[in-house]
Lab assay of single mutants.
Amino acid sequence: CHSECLGNCSQPDDPTKCVACRNFYLDGRCVETCPPPYYHFQDWRCVNFSFCQDLHHKCKNSRRQGCHQYVIHNNKCIPECPSGYTMNSSNLLCTPCLGPCPKVCHLLEGEKTIDSVTSAQELRGCTVINGSLIINIRGGNNLAAELEANLGLIEEISGYLKIRRSYALVSLSFFRKLRLIRGETLEIGNYSFYALDNQNLRQLWDWSKHNLTITQGKLFFHYNPKLCLSEIHKMEEVSGTKGRQERNDIALKTNGDQASCENELLKFSYIRTSFDKILLRWEPYWPPDFRDLLGFMLFYKEAPYQNVTEFDGQDACGSNSWTVVDIDPPLRSNDPKSQNHPGWLMRGLKPWTQYAIFVKTLVTFSDERRTYGAKSDIIYVQTDATNPSVPLDPISVSNSSSQIILKWKPPSDPNGNITHYLVFWERQAEDSELFELDYCLKGLKLPSRTWSPPFESEDSQKHNQSEYEDSAGECCSCPKTDSQILKELEESSFRKTFEDYLHNVVFVPRKT
């Protein structure tokens, strides 16, 4: 048989008469490798580009789960590009990614509803959504962080984005990388972005840091009482949809009607710091009717980097990364020049730590249904340095008659930039024990000054392991946590139920 035959053949030295091919099969003959313009397919066939392209389009058009959109890589027609490569849609070739590779997620039936953290986790790592997304989240724990972890990498949506009755959302900033909504599939009414009845939605994105392009379709905003109209108009300008909307697409009466839409800028007039305090004062603000001013709200939190936005980490279910302080308005003076500047002394802060701070007014709604208010920009203030805590785990070892090696770990709280350490030492008198000992005694162990690591005695271990207080009263049991108490109650309830079950099964009433 021919060298490319495997198993047997019907005619000697003829690659077209093989029972099976050793390498690849091409047009009725066995070959060692697939010549151009053919590609290896499933490690035994040679196919042309049209064959591989037909497989790709067949799966793409069917949208069946589990099928493969075949691509070409290293002269092979394979189910998908290997790690580190992405497909070129024009020629199906796998090309190296520039940075992290995109991950295209194809949605069944063309859309997916995100109504819980669990459903959001199914899209973790996706960068391109081939379909439409509907966000409908009523509640949950730590929602802002969970949504950002699972949806934060999405850069492109081919269909539309719909935010509907998501009472738990305060902001859409968890879509931190969303840059493009194509609108290839539109919501009824030709809408590519749809926001309806979101009672706590206050911000779409921080438009000073976020760009969003909507290729096709219109915007729809109705019944978002805490979303200011200025935020919607800003989205029109940034996304390129200005002029597409009709009169009733953006409701003037049901958007922002319960919001404090600040239209003035508060400026800080005085800032002073110490290692654990920050004193702030800002310019006074009074609405047209000074009785509408209820006070100020001061927001602050630790910020290692200057990239904080107002609604980071917030949701309507209680999660809030900001510390909020309510401040009463100052006494009002008739003389504008003698107006008191409101302020606040922030206490209990960490030394040498940068804080993000902003302040906003708290006002009631005027009778004319106009909203007044003022808010400052987010500023960054760093507390002063102070003395560091003591170095940890000092170790001293003498390696000769004239040297001592000293080692330690950095302090747990540096409280500033540590530039150097101060080492103090003092000579001590020799131990009298060394002169009084009889060095001729056998088995004498000389006193040693070398360091030995501390260890816990058996008594201390027994005390720590004991669940009861000892007789001397030195140790006591740790208080039980809520989960331990709940577990004990469940076990007790189970024992009672099981005992009742045994009584009912074992003891049967005697027939009379």
Rank of each mutant, 00 (worst) to 15 (best):
I154P: 00
N320V: 01
S269P: 02
E310W: 14
N150A: 04
T364A: 14
T353Y: 06
S239P: 02
S321G: 10
L212K: 01
N150W: 12
E184M: 09
L153E: 15
E310V: 06
F268I: 06
L186M: 08
Y160H: 14
Q199G: 07
K409E: 15
E122F: 02
T127K: 02
S338Y: 05
E184R: 05
T241I: 09
L219H: 08
S376K: 01
G183L: 01
I357P: 01
V117Y: 02
S338K: 15
A356K: 01
G152Y: 15
S398P: 11
K103V: 05
T113V: 04
L153H: 05
Y194T: 12
Y191M: 06
L153T: 14
E246A: 04
I129N: 00
A168R: 15
G140F: 06
L107M: 03
T383H: 00
Q382E: 09
C261W: 02
R165I: 13
L201T: 03
I232G: 01
L178S: 00
G256H: 04
S132G: 14
M346A: 10
S116H: 11
I214D: 01
L161C: 13
N150C: 10
G139K: 04
L406F: 09
C228A: 06
S171R: 05
E109A: 12
L123C: 05
N399K: 12
I271A: 04
W282Y: 01
L293T: 08
Q245S: 09
P288V: 14
Q121N: 09
N320R: 04
K301S: 07
Y160N: 05
I181K: 00
W282H: 02
L266Y: 02
H210I: 04
V397A: 12
V363E: 01
G313Y: 05
T241S: 07
N399M: 10
Y223P: 00
W344V: 08
F175T: 01
S398G: 15
P391L: 07
I188V: 10
L349A: 13
L345R: 02
K242L: 12
Q258M: 07
R165A: 04
W205V: 03
P287Q: 05
T241Y: 12
Q258R: 08
P336Q: 11
H106L: 08
K350Y: 07
D257Y: 05
I250E: 15
D377G: 14
F193N: 01
E184F: 12
S269I: 10
L266D: 00
S192A: 03
K350A: 10
N248H: 01
K226V: 14
G159T: 01
A145N: 12
I357Q: 00
H222K: 01
W344P: 01
D393V: 04
G131Y: 01
D312I: 13
F365V: 07
I188A: 14
R281A: 09
Y194P: 01
I163R: 01
K253M: 08
D249T: 12
S269H: 07
P329L: 14
K218Q: 02
K234Q: 13
L161R: 01
V363G: 15
G295I: 06
G140Y: 06
A120Y: 12
N224M: 06
I214A: 06
L219G: 03
A149M: 10
E302D: 06
R138P: 05
A385E: 04
D257P: 04
S119A: 02
D326H: 03
Q199F: 11
K360S: 11
L229A: 15
I214G: 00
I250P: 04
Y355A: 02
N320K: 11
R291L: 05
T371Q: 15
T241M: 14
N255E: 03
L147D: 00
G256E: 05
D249A: 05
F221W: 02
K407L: 12
P225H: 04
S173Q: 07
L298R: 00
H210M: 07
S333R: 10
S171P: 00
P410S: 15
P288H: 03
S274M: 04
N200M: 10
N248C: 08
P351W: 15
W286T: 07
G256V: 06
S376M: 01
Y300L: 08
A303V: 12
S119G: 02
G159R: 01
W207T: 07
P330V: 09
L294W: 15
I163A: 02
E156R: 03
D335L: 12
L143R: 03
S132V: 01
R179M: 07
I405N: 08
K103P: 08
T185L: 08
T254D: 10
K218R: 08
Q258A: 04
S239L: 12
D115S: 12
Y285F: 13
K407T: 03
P394I: 06
E148P: 08
T371E: 02
I405T: 04
G217A: 03
I250F: 13
V308K: 04
N141V: 14
L172T: 12
A120L: 10
S401G: 12
K177A: 09
Q199A: 10
C261L: 02
R369G: 08
S321P: 07
E122R: 05
I214K: 01
I134L: 09
H222T: 01
V324L: 07
L151I: 10
T273K: 14
Y160W: 06
V363D: 04
P304K: 03
L293V: 04
A120C: 14
E146T: 07
G295M: 14
I327S: 03
E237T: 14
F299T: 12
N263D: 01
Y305Q: 01
L186T: 14
I154R: 00
D115R: 05
Q354H: 04
Y355M: 02
A195L: 10
G131A: 04
T273Y: 06
G243Q: 14
W205R: 01
S132M: 00
N130K: 10
L345P: 13
N307T: 04
E262G: 05
